[in-house]
Design a protein around this nucleic acid. Structure first.
Length: 698
DNA sequence: CCCGGGCTGTCTCCC
DNA sequence: ACAGCCCGGG
């Protein structure tokens, strides 16, 4: 322990040693924050604080896993058990565990399902269909954002600025083909009705959405003080990382847990707050100072990551923001290379510039590919870059895009698992009822809906009624037989999953029994490769279930435990092994907390960063976009390349592009403006590794 | 009544 | 260019 403390600077050491009372750590980018947090936890344990009484909240599941690993490392041999007894999780995962334990007090049956965004969309469309509102006329994603705001009490129904965004001018008002639309989809009362229906359906389906994972535990704590007391009593030491990105309900949850012992340490950096669109509010820092009296504040301002030049550029950019805690990040690392800005002709040229440059530098400086990061503002920028990397034979990983678990083929199989666990989950039922095809089409599903809507029961119950002829219906003989088989299949696997404790093997059997492979072959007749790739993913999925079952940290592996876990994994987070030796391509959001020797920031153009929709939405968003730019810059250790295309392909069309206004906020003397060709004036051998190979004789 | 082949709008960021 | 949806054949 002592030697660890010696390695820290005075502020860091203070942060580690202050374990009692409220503590606010303002940790600038690259200030060694993660090390401080993990050392602090290890220090607490070394002082004899039981691991069960420590709660640490992180921002992503990956961060939680890594924190646990690092604490284990610090503690050394034989401390695995101690580390496992710590509670380290995201707010959402924590809320989920509370609901799993006490949800029945709120009326949840123990097998409830967690809906991700895709499920929410499906549910909303269902609700609309039932209210005879044309889903075509709804901007479902915007509407879900509105509902989220309502649920988390961030906005009220009176808040008019939201409606503007839900009524895109000139679109919904034009009726096609002169026919009356089924219902006006743009009025407040319609939205309210939809919201109510959305909520009712969640309850009927025994399902929760992400916001429920925070809001329901709060309700639980309010209505059952004993439960609140249990948690408040248990967690005598609480720590929150990325505090600037906590939302108000998350803060409230934290407060309910920490207010008793008040040993609460929050770590954050207001300059890196980049999630306000999902409710993050860094004014929680001020609330914290008011709610917990005599808060000790420690600022970590020494940066150990970046060269002086990069840091100066970052500082200059962020100083344009008003309303921030004054900070003076400094470094002892010298100025380093200038930042480089170039202007490729189009996004294709940008991509090949990046690929070439990586190849060249990897060769010239023997840099490993994983020391490069390519940052993008939107996922749509990824494709061209991926193509260039493939073309150049550069191994890479795109992270932060669609999660593995959100792929269609995975959601299909997971849909079966979900319906087996919770038959009332209509969203999963609709997904699986005719996938693979079993002859149940639109009409049959409509007939089932009629039965279900009338009685306010789930579709699964409706099927049961129909199959057992306990209700009048118009379903034909063929489809009815198919429905019966579907019922039998799910019932059979309900039994198998409860009997056999081997989840992975049972899932494999299920995939075989429904002949998912045959379905893939059928669906992808034109591309056997596509079918094979998807089947391979199913294999990965089954192995991931197996890993879950084998994981010693999971005390009692269950189908529900697994499904809950994956529903919180909304983005691909690669393990260190998977990422080794690969160039990292990701959005700026996904890059928060990471660092690379060489960083490429692609698309530094007006409309991309700052993003057009962000600035249109509200004036205040410009500062958040600037913080995003700041986060991007501060990911770089040695060198930062920025590219601003002259033209760019947007939705198939080539448009003229203009450099981002943020570029002008970087002092000119820190930046080198270059032409696009990276190889200009440098000789590249045919095989970049020929010289090395010759040298080492391999 | 179901299925496959053509057509259309689409993308900000994510627990 | 890609997923989700509409329409005519079986």
């Amino acid at each position: 322990m002592d030697h660890l403390l010696e390695r820290l600077n005075p502020q860091q050491r203070d942060a580690v040693l202050t374990i009692d009372g409220p503590l606010l750590i303002i940790a600038g980018a690259g200030s060694g924050k993660t090390g401080v947090i993990t050392t602090r936890i290890a220090y607490m344990l070394s002082r004899g604080i039981p691991p069960e009484s420590i709660l640490a909240m992180t921002f992503t599941n990956k961060a939680a896993g890594e924190m646990k690993e690092r604490v284990k490392e610090i503690l050394g041999e034989g401390a695995g058990k101690t580390a496992s007894a710590l509670t380290i999780s995201t707010f959402h995962a924590f809320g989920l565990s509370v609901l799993r334990r006490y949800g029945r007090l709120l009326g949840y049956r123990p097998n409830f399902t967690v809906y991700d965004t895709g499920d929410q969309v499906a549910l909303l469309k269902e609700a609309a269909r039932e209210l005879r509102i044309d889903p075509e006329e709804l901007e479902v994603y915007n509407l879900l954002q509105l509902f989220s705001g309502i649920k988390t009490e961030r906005i009220t129904w009176q808040d008019e600025r939201w409606y503007a965004m839900l009524n895109p001018s000139g679109k919904s008002s034009q009726d096609k083909s002169g026919e009356e639309p089924s219902r006006g989809a743009g009025s407040i009362s319609t939205f309210q009705e939809l919201y109510r229906s959305y909520q009712e359906h969640l309850i009927t389906f025994n399902a929760v959405d992400f916001d429920d994972l925070i809001m329901q535990p709060l309700t639980l704590f309010r209505e059952h003080p004993k439960v609140q007391g249990h948690y408040a009593d248990l967690y005598r030491y609480v720590l929150v990382d990325e505090f600037q990105d906590t939302s108000t309900p998350q803060y409230n949850l934290l407060y309910q847990i920490a207010r008793e012992w008040k040993n609460v340490c929050v770590v954050g950096d207001d300059d890196q707050s980049i999630y306000s669109w999902r409710g993050a509010d860094y004014s929680n820092i001020e609330r914290f100072e008011k709610d917990f009296l005599r808060v000790k504040e420690i600022k970590l301002e020494r940066n150990y990551r970046s060269t002086g030049g990069i840091l100066s550029a970052a500082n200059a950019v962020i100083s344009n923001n008003t309303n921030r805690k004054e900070k003076a990040l400094w470094t002892q690392i010298d100025g380093g290379n200038l930042l480089e800005l170039s202007f490729p002709d189009d996004d294709g040229a940008e991509a090949s510039f990046i690929a070439e440059k990586i190849k060249l530098r990897a060769y010239q400086e023997s840099l490993a590919y994983d020391s490069f990061g390519i940052l993008i503002r939107t996922n749509s920028q990824a494709r061209v870059i991926e193509e260039a990397l493939l073309e150049a034979d550069i191994p890479y990983r795109m992270s932060g895009g669609q999660s593995f678990f959100q792929r269609k083929e995975i959601k299909d199989i997971a849909g079966y698992l979900r319906i087996i666990l919770n038959p009332d989950d209509d969203v999963s039922l609709l997904r699986t009822i005719n996938t693979p095809r079993r002859g149940i089409g639109r009409r049959t599903v409509e007939a089932l809906h009629e039965i279900a809507d009338e009685r306010k029961i789930s579709l699964y119950s409706a099927i049961t009624l129909a199959v057992h002829r306990e209700v009048d219906h118009s379903i034909g003989k063929g489809p009815l037989g198919a429905l019966e088989e579907y019922l039998e299949l799910t019932a059979r696997y309900q039994e198998r999953f409860s009997e056999s404790k081997h989840l992975a093997a049972t899932t494999e059997r299920l995939a075989t029994e429904i002949d998912y492979w045959g379905y893939l072959v059928q669906e992808f007749q034109k591309s056997e490769r596509a079918a094979k790739a998807k089947w391979k993913n199913i294999g990965f999925f089954i192995r991931s279930i197996d890993r879950y079952e084998q994981n010693p940290d999971v005390l009692e592996p269950t189908l529900q435990g697994y499904l809950n876990r994956i529903s919180l994994q909304t983005r691909d987070e690669l393990s260190p092994e998977e990422a080794a030796g690969k160039v990292n391509l990701m959005t700026i959001h996904a890059a928060k907390g990471l660092e690379f020797d060489v960083v490429f920031l692609a698309g530094v153009e007006e409309g991309i960063i700052p993003h057009q929709r962000a600035v249109e939405e509200s004036e205040g968003n410009l500062e958040e976009e600037r913080r995003l730019f700041y986060v991007a810059i501060t990911r770089a250790r040695q060198q930062l390349y920025m590219t601003s295309c002259r033209r760019r392909q947007v939705q198939g069309e080539m448009i003229e592009a203009v450099p981002s206004p943020f570029i002008e906020e970087i002092p000119a003397e820190l930046m080198l403006k270059t032409l696009a060709d990276p190889t200009a004036g440098v000789e590249m051998p045919e095989d970049p590794f020929a010289a090395l190979k010759a040298h080492f004789g391999s």
